[in-house]
Amino acid sequence: MPSVSMTVNGNAVGGDIEARTLLVDFIREHLRLTGTHVGCDTSQCGACVVHVDGTSVKSCTMLALQAEGCQVETIESLADGDTLHPMQEAFREHHGLQCGFCTPGMVMTAVAMAKENPNLTESDVRHGLEGNFCRCTGYQNIVESIIAGAKAMQG
């Protein structure tokens, strides 16, 4: 089996894995970081979004071996101890989640979106979420959360 090494949430990790192992499965099954979720098998739902070298990526679209040497960040990296990241706080404040299953992917997508454009409009956010499904909220509070979270990230 080939071996892989990468940095996940600031920690050097690695191991021997089957070549077909997806990055999401490496994160969930090998590293037991279960905040990254799997909601589909056709790369449509976005529950598995993580950051790879600072870019948001659906971790089901990438083999773990393709992340060799990369900096990977998952939802577990955002909070600073008990202090939530401003985007996480915004989702809570604006009721941007219900069942929570899509939330890690939403938050990771949102953080990347906000880093790229801190002054997001409603239209920017709605189009920016084209890769993320939520079945609970009707999206409105997610949009409000992301706009507010992006502002808070600047402060």
Binding site: F91, R92, H95
Partner: peptide, 19 residues
């Protein structure tokens, strides 16, 4: 009231069946 459960959900600390 803001939700108690959100703290674990926004942090990736929820426990769903596949976790």
């Amino acid at each position: 009231v803001r939700r108690t459960e959100d703290i674990r959900f926004v942090s990736g600390q929820g426990t769903y069946i596949d976790d």
